[in-house]
C-alpha cells in the first residue's frame, strides 16, 4: 500500500492546477547535487530530488577495446533499485525497470559524447573502461532525472587513474577523466488524469498512464524514452520539448555549481 493519496484527490488537485506538495505542473521538487560523496570511487555524486535519493559511482578500470572500435575506451552503466529503498523493490537480478533506467541514462550520456572515449586508449588492446553504477537509496519517483543528474555530475567530476609500468595507480596526483565539455540533463513528464506534469513523485507515478523522458544538451535532444501503456499527442510532445529546453538551463547550472566550474 504505497499510495498516500487517492487518485480522486490527485485528480481534484490537478484540475485546480495544483499538486500534493503545492507544486505547479512544470515544477521540479527541491533538489540537491553533491559531488565526491564516495571518495574511493574515481567519481561520485549524491542527488536528492524531493525524497528520492540516488548515488552515482564511477570506477575507471583497465579493459580491452571493442572489436569495431579498437582505438577507443568504453563506457557502461548499470542501475540497482536497492531493496532498502522501497518496500516494492526486491532482491535478485536487475528488474526490467532497473535495466530500462540504466539504458536510458546511458543513452543520453553516450549520445551527448560527454566522455572523450578516444582519449581512453592506452596502447594496443588496452583501454580504460568507465563504469557508472546508479544506486537508488530511497524511492519517491522520477529516478530517470535524478540518475541522469547524478551520473552526469559523477562523470564530470571524476579523476583519472594512471597506467605506469604495467600498474594502475589510483592515488596521488591524478588528472581528470577526459571529457568533451558537453553535458546532458533530462526532464521526465507523466500523464496523470489527462494532465501533463513534470517530475512525478511516487504517488503520481503510480497513477500515470504514460511517461516521457527527454534528455538534452544546450542545443539538441540527445535521448528520449516513452514508457507505460498510455500515449501522447504530437502537441503534447511539442509542449514537453519546449518545457524541457527551458528547465534544462537551470539543471545545467546546478550541475556546474556542484562541480564548481
Amino acid at each position: 500500500m504505497k499510495n498516500t493519496t487517492s487518485y480522486e484527490y490527485i485528480k481534484e488537485l490537478l484540475s485546480k492546477g495544483s499538486r500534493e506538495d503545492g507544486r505547479k505542473s512544470n515544477d521540479f521538487r527541491k533538489y540537491t547535487i553533491e559531488k565526491g560523496t564516495m571518495p574511493n570511487a574515481e567519481g561520485s555524486a549524491t542527488v536528492n530530488l524531493g525524497y528520492t535519493r540516488v548515488i552515482a559511482g564511477v570506477k575507471v578500470v583497465l579493459g580491452s577495446p571493442m572489436k569495431d572500435r579498437p582505438n577507443e575506451g568504453n563506457m557502461a552503466m548499470s542501475a540497482e533499485l536497492l531493496p532498502l529503498a522501497s518496500p516494492d523493490f526486491e532482491t535478485g537480478p536487475p528488474s526490467p525497470e532497473a535495466i530500462e533506467l540504466a539504458r536510458v541514462v546511458d543513452r543520453g550520456i553516450r549520445a551527448a559524447n560527454i566522455i572523450d572515449l578516444p582519449k581512453l586508449f592506452i596502447e594496443e588492446e588496452k583501454v580504460w573502461d568507465v563504469y557508472t553504477d546508479l544506486y537508488v537509496l530511497n524511492f519517491d519517483g522520477n529516478l530517470f532525472d535524478a540518475c541522469t543528474l547524478a551520473a552526469t555530475t559523477a562523470i564530470l567530476s571524476a579523476r583519472m587513474p594512471k597506467y605506469e609500468n604495467e600498474q594502475v595507480i589510483r592515488e596521488g596526483n591524478l588528472g581528470k577523466l577526459p571529457l568533451t565539455g558537453n553535458m546532458v540533463t533530462s526532464c521526465t513528464f507523466g500523464s496523470v488524469a489527462g494532465n501533463m506534469i513534470l517530475d512525478m513523485n511516487a504517488n503520481e507515478e503510480s497513477f500515470a498512464s504514460a511517461r516521457l523522458t527527454i534528455a538534452n544538451d544546450e542545443n539538441v535532444v540527445r535521448a528520449m524514452q516513452k514508457g507505460l501503456e498510455g500515449s501522447f499527442t504530437e502537441k503534447e510532445v511539442a509542449d514537453m520539448l519546449e518545457v524541457t529546453f527551458e528547465k534544462s538551463k537551470e539543471l545545467r547550472k546546478s550541475i556546474n555549481n556542484s562541480i564548481g566550474e
Partner: peptide, 8 residues
C-alpha cells in the same frame, strides 16, 4: 472511503 488523503 472515497477520495481524500491517506497519511501514514
Amino acid at each position: 472511503l472515497t477520495g481524500g488523503k491517506l497519511l501514514y
